[in-house]
């Protein structure tokens, strides 16, 4: 069964190519672009807030509603860990990531009685072009695993029947950087 993946960029394409499921599912990759960092908050304009936070967040809300209206049983929202860690010069991007991640919990609470599961996967910031040299370190220690990390496996599992008892959770898939 095909999985609908919404969102742009390399990560969305990787998931589009790699995720398959036995259950009607939707994957929402948050439209977050780390290339537009703000070097100082005094440079932040209303237009920045609208483009970096407001419009992408509204798209997350609408994508969740579409997933519900098309009877998806598994919904997965993919965000960078930047929402949990914060990021210097990335305040609106971090706000977007954390808003989307916590909205997952609200959706899980409301839709759980109908069997719909809603979960988040938090991935390494580089997937969203967030520069660790600007944002500051994600964690106090280096990444635990040295191999290249792909979120395809964990997203596939969250889209499957096997994960039917898991909802409202965030699985961090970054090789053990953020703990």
């Amino acid at each position: 069964m095909s999985v609908k993946v919404s969102g742009e960029g390399a990560l969305a394409q990787v998931l589009r190519d790699g995720v398959h499921s036995d259950t009607r599912s939707a994957v929402i990759v948050v439209d977050l672009n780390g290339e537009n960092s703000i070097s100082s908050l005094t440079e932040l304009t209303d237009t920045h807030i609208d483009e970096i936070y407001e419009q992408p967040m509204q798209r997350v809300i609408l994508a969740l509603q579409e997933a519900h209206s098309t009877n998806c049983e598994r919904i997965v929202v993919v965000v960078p860990t930047t929402g949990m860690s914060g990021g210097a010069c990335y305040a609106p991007q971090a706000a977007l990531a954390e808003s989307a991640r916590i909205l997952v919990k609200s959706a899980a609470r409301q839709w759980g009685s109908t069997g719909i599961t809603v979960n988040a996967v938090a991935v390494e910031p580089h997937w969203f072009s967030i520069d660790a040299n600007i944002s500051g370190p994600v964690a106090i220690a280096p990444r635990s695993l040295s191999n290249e990390v792909s979120p395809v496996g964990v997203v596939t599992w969250l889209c499957s029947e096997a994960s039917r008892d898991i909802t409202g959770q965030t699985i961090v898939c970054d090789g053990g950087l953020w703990m």
Partner: peptide
């Protein structure tokens, strides 16, 4: 449900600006 993401954003902003 939409109250939570608005409040979550504030925590992320605080962490970001703290850095």
């Amino acid at each position: 449900p939409l109250y939570s993401p608005a409040k979550a954003a504030q925590r992320a902003i605080a962490k970001s600006l703290a850095r």
